[in-house]
Measured scan of single mutants.
Amino acid sequence: DEVTIHLGDKTIRVDGLDKELLEILKELARRGADEEELRKEIERWER
């Protein structure tokens, strides 16, 4: 499953996201997290 996250004018595509992680990323994005913060969160989950 590829998920596309839209952040204002930026788009991040991620393969096979965990549903819980997806919810966390959506919440972070709502709070104004930037792409770098979201990537760090994704990397934390992948470990």
Score class of each variant (00 low, 15 high):
residue 15 D to T: 10
residue 5 I to K: 04
residue 17 L to H: 07
residue 30 R to T: 08
residue 23 E to D: 13
residue 39 R to Y: 11
residue 31 R to L: 13
residue 47 R to W: 03
residue 15 D to V: 15
residue 22 L to I: 15
residue 8 G to D: 08
residue 38 L to F: 10
residue 47 R to P: 14
residue 9 D to V: 05
residue 41 E to K: 03
residue 47 R to V: 13
residue 38 L to W: 05
residue 40 K to T: 07
residue 10 K to D: 08
residue 27 E to C: 09
residue 15 D to E: 14
residue 22 L to W: 08
residue 10 K to V: 13
residue 37 E to L: 09
residue 15 D to M: 00
residue 25 L to D: 00
residue 40 K to A: 14
residue 23 E to V: 10
residue 41 E to C: 06
residue 43 E to H: 06
residue 13 R to F: 09
residue 19 K to N: 09
residue 30 R to S: 13
residue 10 K to W: 03
residue 19 K to P: 15
residue 9 D to W: 00
residue 39 R to F: 08
residue 7 L to M: 07
residue 33 A to D: 01
residue 5 I to F: 00
residue 15 D to Q: 05
residue 24 I to Y: 10
residue 14 V to R: 04
residue 39 R to C: 05
residue 3 V to Y: 08
residue 46 E to K: 03
residue 21 L to M: 04
residue 47 R to M: 11
residue 19 K to V: 10
residue 40 K to Q: 08
residue 9 D to Q: 07
residue 10 K to Q: 07
residue 40 K to W: 04
residue 26 K to S: 08
residue 7 L to G: 06
residue 40 K to Y: 04
residue 32 G to R: 01
residue 47 R to N: 15
residue 9 D to H: 06
residue 37 E to D: 13
residue 14 V to Y: 04
residue 36 E to K: 07
residue 6 H to G: 08
residue 5 I to D: 05
residue 9 D to Y: 00
residue 2 E to F: 12
residue 35 E to I: 13
residue 21 L to N: 00
residue 33 A to K: 03
residue 37 E to C: 10
residue 15 D to N: 04
residue 39 R to N: 05
residue 10 K to L: 14
residue 6 H to P: 10
residue 47 R to F: 04
residue 11 T to R: 08
residue 26 K to G: 05
residue 29 A to V: 13
residue 37 E to V: 13
residue 2 E to G: 15
residue 17 L to G: 05
residue 5 I to T: 05
residue 18 D to G: 10
residue 26 K to P: 00
residue 22 L to Q: 14
residue 18 D to C: 07
residue 43 E to G: 04
residue 43 E to Y: 01
residue 41 E to P: 00
residue 38 L to T: 02
residue 36 E to I: 11
residue 36 E to H: 13
residue 17 L to R: 11
residue 6 H to R: 14
residue 5 I to P: 04
residue 11 T to W: 01
residue 21 L to Q: 03
residue 32 G to F: 02
residue 30 R to Y: 05
residue 17 L to P: 03
residue 36 E to Y: 10
residue 41 E to M: 11
residue 15 D to C: 11
residue 36 E to L: 09
residue 7 L to N: 05
residue 5 I to M: 02
residue 26 K to W: 05
residue 30 R to K: 15
residue 26 K to A: 10
residue 24 I to H: 12
residue 43 E to T: 02
residue 11 T to K: 11
residue 3 V to T: 14
residue 25 L to A: 00
residue 30 R to C: 07
residue 2 E to Y: 13
residue 16 G to Q: 14
residue 44 R to V: 03
residue 29 A to Y: 05
residue 35 E to V: 13
residue 9 D to P: 06
residue 33 A to R: 03
residue 34 D to L: 08
residue 33 A to C: 03
residue 8 G to T: 12
residue 46 E to Y: 09
residue 9 D to I: 04
